[in-house]
Each structure stands twice: as structure tokens, then as C-alpha cells.
């Protein structure tokens, strides 16, 4: 018999010993090649199968296979162990100091004015208002005349308005957009119009010759002062929080009648009075009113059929209040350290 059990047993013993000794995956692989590889010892032994007597072949074959299985099994088990050890070593090795500083691709920051405007727009868009724009260089007619501010009105004083020439000026209010929209003749109208306005005020902590307003206009068949109150109260609660209270005070604007100013309860102190609201508990945030029937008429809208309300919000005022910015000049300086805070 070219293959004997003792030889197999001896190979097996040596193989198992070699597996035991293999301290790394590479060494283990060498063992596998040496015993069960294509040219391995056990494989070589199998080659002697052809010399085994035919009747002995099943028995010898079984013995060889059994030996091979034992060796391979031992290799696999050793491999699992060695892999586990290797992984552990690798993980150990790869440990980092997670408290080292972050690598950042810095994001930019939206200007506080624009953040406030986004909030306003979202609220009114949610209530069905369309956003429209109007010209910043405007005609006298749209900025004044059509808004019931006749030629000699004090509001037209050169002190307040920047003029280009007799007829063209820099708009002092976004209200002119109301007229442009109404003149289009598409009713009903439900719009807000944010934009830049200009007034001849020297730059200081609370004034800027250029600032922003958000105009609002609703024209429909059944519109009431009560609707105006409800709309603006909803707006205030959305913007400043559900606990916000509002107060409407009579006021005068040439293009609305009745007119009002709206105060909101101070969102710092809740209305008790603090430094922020100058002890009053209330903060004035906008002007509003029912569109003056004469204004409707000048735009070709029949005031007996249609009514409207309008409001104007100072955007910087909202931004300064909401984000507690104490100097309006910061809004136009664009210091990165300022912008980074928004």
C-alpha cells in the first residue's frame, strides 16, 4: 500500500502543530499551502491513490479525506482567531483623538434683514399673499399723488424725499406698489411687496437713508377693518409667538382711512415693561388702515363695490427687535463677525 495510515497520521500531527505555531495570517497561509495546497504534502499523498488496490480505495480515500478535513478545519479555526486578533490590532492602531478640531467648509450667513423678510414672506404666502416688486426710482405720482398726498403735503418735504428731478424721486415708501398693482385692474388683489426705500435721514444708530419696508394690500368685495385686525394679529402671533398681544391705535396716513398703528406686547418682558420696550410693555411695529376710497377711485376701482386694507412694515425695525441688534449701522457695514452670528 502506497498510502498508509501512519503516514497520514504523522502528516496530520505535523500540520496541526504547524497551525498552532502560525502566529500570523501569512504564516497560516504558508501552512495551508504546505499541506493542502496544490503541491502540498497531503495532495502529494493523494497522488499515490492510483497505486492503491481498487478494493482498498474507499477506505483509504475516506482516511485521506478525514485527515484533510481535520487539517482544513484547524486552519479555518486558526484563521478566524488570527483575523480577530489582526482586526483588534488594526482598530487599536487606528484610534484617533476625536477632540482634535473639526475641518470645516464654512457656510455663509444670510443677512438678518433677509432672515426677517423670509419669515414675513412665509407667513403672508401661507395666508395666500403673492409677493410683488415695484420700482425703487419712482414717479412722484405713485409715491405721493395717487396715495392722496397732494403737491403741498408736508410729507413731500424735500427734507424727507430724495429727488432726481421734479417728477422722478427715490421712493420713500413701498406704498406706490399698491397703486401699480391696483392699476393692473386684476381683482381681487392679495399681495405683499418688500423693497428698499429712501429717506433723507442722516446715518445714526436708529436711522439710515436707505431701509426696507414690506407693503401689504388686500382688495376684495367684502373687506373690513375687523379683517385687517385679524390678519395682522395672526401675523404678529406667527412672527413673535402665540402669546403675543396686539394693540391697534388710531393714527393718520393720507392713503388709508381709518388708519391705525399696531403695537405688539413686548416679547422680552411679555408686556410688563422693560428697557427694551422703554417701560411701555408695547412695541410699535407697523402702520395700517382701510385703503382710502379716493385712492381706490384714482386707480379705477369702484369704492362702492370694492374695499381694501393695506399695511406697511419696517423690515429693519423687525430685524433689530427680533435679533436684538442695537445699532442700525451694523446692518450696512457687513462685518463678517456680525454676519456670522445669524
Amino acid at each position: 500500500m502506497a498510502i498508509n495510515a501512519a503516514e497520514l497520521e504523522e502528516i496530520k500531527e505535523r500540520a496541526l502543530e504547524a497551525i498552532k505555531q502560525a502566529g500570523a495570517l501569512e504564516a497560516l497561509n504558508d501552512v495551508r499551502v504546505a499541506f493542502t495546497g496544490k503541491k502540498g504534502e497531503l495532495t502529494e499523498v493523494l497522488k499515490g491513490m492510483k497505486d492503491v488496490a481498487k478494493e482498498d480505495r474507499p477506505k483509504v480515500g475516506a482516511l485521506v479525506n478525514e485527515t484533510r478535513d481535520i487539517i482544513e478545519d484547524a486552519i479555518n479555526k486558526a484563521k478566524i482567531n488570527l483575523e480577530a486578533t489582526a482586526l483588534e490590532a488594526r482598530l487599536q492602531n487606528e484610534t484617533i483623538d476625536v477632540t482634535l478640531p473639526a475641518k470645516k467648509r464654512r457656510l455663509g450667513h444670510v443677512h438678518p434683514n433677509a432672515i426677517a423678510l423670509d419669515e414675513l414672506e412665509n407667513i403672508f404666502i401661507g395666508m395666500g399673499y403673492e409677493v410683488v416688486e415695484g420700482p425703487e426710482v419712482e414717479k412722484d405720482y405713485y409715491n405721493f399723488e395717487a396715495l392722496n398726498i397732494p403737491a403741498d403735503h408736508p410729507a413731500k418735504d424735500e427734507q424727507d424725499t430724495f429727488y432726481i428731478n421734479g417728477d422722478m424721486l427715490l421712493r420713500t415708501q413701498t406704498s406706490g406698489t399698491q397703486i401699480h398693482e391696483m392699476e393692473k385692474g386684476r381683482l381681487p388683489i392679495k399681495m405683499i411687496s418688500p423693497g428698499r426705500v429712501f429717506r433723507s435721514d442722516e446715518v445714526d444708530a436708529t436711522h439710515s437713508p436707505s431701509f426696507h419696508q414690506v407693503e401689504g394690500l388686500l382688495v376684495d368685495k367684502e373687506v373690513t377693518l375687523a379683517d385687517l385686525k385679524g390678519t395682522l394679529e395672526t401675523f404678529a402671533k406667527k412672527l413673535f409667538g402665540e402669546d403675543t398681544k396686539v394693540k391697534f391705535r388710531p393714527h393718520h396716513f393720507p392713503f388709508t382711512e381709518p388708519s391705525a398703528e399696531m403695537d405688539v406686547s413686548c416679547f422680552k418682558c411679555g408686556g410688563k415693561g422693560c428697557r427694551f420696550c422703554k417701560g411701555e410693555g408695547w412695541i410699535e411695529i407697523l402702520g395700517c388702515g382701510m385703503v382710502h376710497p379716493h385712492v381706490l377711485e384714482m386707480c379705477g376701482i369702484d369704492p362702492l363695490k370694492y374695499k381694501g386694507f393695506a399695511f406697511g412694515i419696517g423690515l429693519e425695525r423687525i430685524a433689530l427687535l427680533k435679533y436684538e441688534i442695537d445699532d442700525m449701522r451694523l446692518l450696512y457695514e457687513n462685518d463678517q463677525r456680525f454676519l456670522d452670528q445669524f
Binding site: L107, G108, V110, P209
Partner: peptide, 13 residues
């Protein structure tokens, strides 16, 4: 903003 630019507001005049 995604590329790290922050928004400024400047005067028109």
C-alpha cells in the same frame, strides 16, 4: 451661502 459667502446689504447711492 453654501460656498461660504455671507450676505451684505449696501447703499444704493
Amino acid at each position: 451661502c453654501a460656498f461660504g459667502f455671507s450676505q451684505g446689504y449696501c447703499y444704493s447711492f
